[in-house]
Design a protein around this nucleic acid. Structure first.
Lengths: 197, 197
DNA sequence: ATCACTTTTTATCATTTGTTAATGGATTAC
DNA sequence: GTAATCCATTAACAAATGATAAAAAGTGAT
């Protein structure tokens, strides 16, 4: 019963990206695993082997890189219902190009990337699901690119809040400020400024 | 003879992305067209129907959006040998999400996106080619994201020059400055500063 | 070559953001 | 409960960037 209910909620997860028939979902069901990640754990490490696709069932995660000065730069945030960047865009020669970290405790759905790809080839709905994930990834990167190019830091913070507001009270601020392209001191100033009205 | 030679150079174009066998290339050959675009022409317009994949044979192009203030924001530059963003990431319901403009006279290789997709499904090499294009797209966006988050405008200009240097003398500077996330006046200052040493 | 037009550069001043360091608040370990 | 630690906030100053406008340079047509 518990398992059944869990499958229902996982089906909902995919449906939010692209509605799937019972047949397609049952094919996916045969190849995924549930994984629990503790808060702060870096569950995908740069340059390390990785051959999975991931969906976030509950919790928040981020992707990040370390720049030449040794600072961690957050590239994207992920929340419940999001797919992580597709394996093909996230790895080169099966090694990860980025780090991914749990920002809260996280429940992940994990697929073997090759098995998922095979399902994409044989099943139109799953192919469309995969392509929708890819599209979402590029759209969110394009939106961020556009925001960085044409909005002020204050506007970008307001945009971040509308999508991930709750995170601001859960995680260290340098994680957010590096995403916004500003220092944590500037973030603190903007927070104060917005609060004053 | 001319046609033959042209095919050779087009094969070279794909080989730079991912080497193809003669068999795979001949399959591609049956579905592509060569297209000439005049300098400044916007050959893909936002919100308009588009169902093609593109490769740049010669010349330079850019993608751009118009922000709420009416300013054109350049998102990416493309040069000879580049594929444009894949159709799947560039369109929604077959309508373009971005504008694409020729910055010089441009020779394009154009594929019908559905026909290209069918070849990807039936042919492993072409599938790998398509995936390599996708990967390159994400990598270049990630690199730009990282540069905007952690480099100064001067460092970003130096990076732009190493990849597209010649463009700086061919196109209007606001096209470049919006890509770098600064005003054209700031770009002029940086140019002067770098020139002085 | 000249004129009209466009683009880049320069100048001035205002604003934003960065840097560094000190302060204050919260959390955790003991 | 207190000390130690971590993190956000604040302050003071420096540097970078923006906005506006004027000057200079470049481009194209005639």
């Amino acid at each position: 019963m518990t398992a059944r209910k869990e499958n229902e909620s996982i089906k909902e997860l995919f449906n939010k990206i692209l509605p799937l028939s019972e047949v397609s979902f049952s094919k996916l069901k045969t190849i995924f695993n549930s994984v629990s990640i503790k808060k702060d754990e870096v569950f995908i490490k740069i340059d390390q082997k990785n051959n999975s696709e991931y969906f976030i069932e509950t919790g928040f995660a981020r992707s990040f890189l370390v720049n030449p000065e040794g600072e961690e730069i957050t590239l994207s945030f992920y929340k419940s219902g999001n797919a992580l960047s597709p394996h093909i865009t996230r790895t080169k020669l099966n090694k990860s190009l980025l780090n991914f970290q749990a920002l809260t405790s996280v429940e992940l759905i994990e697929f073997d990337a090759d098995q998922f790809l095979n399902l994409m080839i044989e099943n139109l709905e799953i192919r469309n699901l995969g392509n929708a994930i890819l599209l979402n990834e590029l759209i969110s990167k394009t939106e961020k690119e556009m925001a960085l190019a044409s909005l002020t830091a204050k506007e970008r913070l307001i945009g971040f809040r509308s999508e991930f507001g709750i995170l601001e009270n859960l995680i260290a601020h340098p994680i957010i400020s590096s995403y916004l392209g500003i220092t944590n001191v500037s973030l603190s100033r903007l927070r104060n400024e917005i609060a004053k009205g």
